[in-house]
Design a protein around this nucleic acid. Sequence first.
DNA 1: ACATTGACCTGGGAGC
DNA 2: TGCTCCCAGGTCAATG
Length: 271
Amino acid sequence: MPELPEVETMRRGIEPHILNETIITIIVRERRLRWPVSKQFDAQAPGSKVQQVQRRSKYLLVYTSKGCIILHLGMSGSLRILDVNTPAEKHDHVDIVFSNNKIIRFRDPRRFGSVFWTRADPLKHKLLIKLGPEPLDEIFCPELLFKKSRGRKQNIKTFIMNSQIVVGVGNIYACESLFLAGIHPTTAAGKISKKRLEILVETIKDVLNKAIKKGGTTLKDFTQADGNPGYFAQSLNVYGRESEPCNVCKKPVKKITQCQRSTFYCPACQR
DNA sequence: ACATTGACCTGGGAGC
DNA sequence: TGCTCCCAGGTCAATG
């Protein structure tokens, strides 16, 4: 469900509500997420005070005085800030209750999301330690992409979705950035010129930045932390537009499958 | 080292 | 109306 812009939007929406607030209690209704929610979480987190809310890749990091809560929303997860007495509904798996009578409510029908609690550095967590560079960081640059892609036969679309290469480029924005770069999604990563990779790095940064500015893409059940939907969906060029005319050349957008994921592209504009 | 596939889950929409 | 099938924004572990 959420890609990097949605998670960043979520982070910005949530932080002001909980900064400097104390966690009163943790309510776990369902521990069976992508990984089981540990009992240390609800045992140890209460009494801790929120110091900052950060993001690494698509993980939200809630740093507190006693440890860090690591949240991932998977495909169908959402977080909302609610009043403490709002009744829980189906799939509302975890509540974090704060001293200002607000709660963060984690809902996730498909349970691909995860919630961790760690007293160590969250960036050293097993699932975060191997992550590649942030796409909006200057470390993610054409030289790096060029170097990492040489000798790779994998198609460029799957390649840029590999979190060891660069994090935060999910299915939507992989399709969109390749469209804007004019690169055909099936091209072998290792055969793309440095010049074209320069453009690709630029379009990845652009598309993510623009989506963050617009508050994330609206798709199905995505809502921002305050419950208002984002509105980036209307500016998608190819994603979800199979058979519809390309915004540039009017030829029909094509849909193919790569690595078991749908890829949308314009066969005329992307070579 | 690299590349691909299966797996984890539920809900919504299409088609019959 | 109701059933079945297919699809979905992620990403890890296992397998070639």
